[in-house]
Design a protein around this nucleic acid. Structure first.
Lengths: 135, 135
DNA sequence: TTCATAAATGCAAATGATTTGCATTTACTA
DNA sequence: TAGTAAATGCAAATCATTTGCATTTATGAA
């Protein structure tokens, strides 16, 4: 695992530093959108959060991870598995559930047609509700 | 128009101050999601932006307007027409187009069923692409 | 119309997430 | 194993948004 991640990071043209490997491991461990704060909990106490921000930004640029907006005043990040998916967020406890079986490509095509836009390259679809534990 | 807005604001239990009426008029004029800066451009120079933030927040609380997240580092606001709709945003010039004919209630129902959540009360769906003018 | 009062405003300062500058350290390749 | 570009830590800057507080104002009752 450690070895594979090291090669993975280098394959993107990035130096495989210990902090980068730890950030990657944390993202893999959660396999859900996590905050910078969540990631910091998994790192050495002496790691500066500036460094984590920089690592996340470079990972996003390289396409290794995705930045997610969830109506909070901070960002979330998750491993880019390649599989497109959406999220369901509990408005009470903030629990995040991944939604895989949700295809809006037909809708997107229809929207593109009616809009007059040249292209639609991306979309964001998030659901907000109450989970099982939050009545 | 001025008179109607005055009554409208008062009907929400709010004082119909000149600044509130101007903010409302600006939101009506654009009839698209606008930023605090867009609104400020339409106000007297002596109006403080703190006041605008406070007005927008109270309008959102009362349900007169909606706050919209569009992957920018600031928020957008638009009049709440009652009609649910989505947005299509140009990634080059930031032009925003309203999408009315887009129903995902069937998808939402399906997501709710599979998720185990108690309820889904809200969703955010935004498309990002390139408009006619931005090749 | 006038008054009392709660609500609204302006200004300054605080907040909180995120970014930047810069000196120092480190991973990597030749 | 050394040289070098890239990465890190720390402090300070940004930028949108909020808060505290003293002052002003809209509104409804007398």
């Amino acid at each position: 695992m450690i070895m594979e991640n090291k090669e993975l990071v280098k394959s993107y043209g990035l130096k495989a530093t210990p902090t980068r490997l730890s950030v990657l491991a944390a993202l893999q461990k959660y396999s859900k959108p996590v905050s910078v704060f969540d990631i910091l909990k998994n790192l050495n106490k002496n790691t500066d959060q500036t460094t984590v921000y920089r690592i996340l930004n470079v990972f996003v640029e390289k396409g290794m991870i995705k930045k997610i907006d969830l109506k909070k005043d901070f960002s979330f990040f998750e491993i880019n598995e390649g599989k497109h998916h959406h999220h369901l967020v509990c408005q009470s406890c903030s629990k995040i559930k991944e939604i895989e079986s949700c295809d809006i490509s037909a809708i997107e095509k229809q929207v593109l047609k009616k809009s007059g836009f040249k292209s639609i390259d991306e979309h964001a679809l998030e659901f907000y509700g109450l989970c099982e534990n939050c009545a």
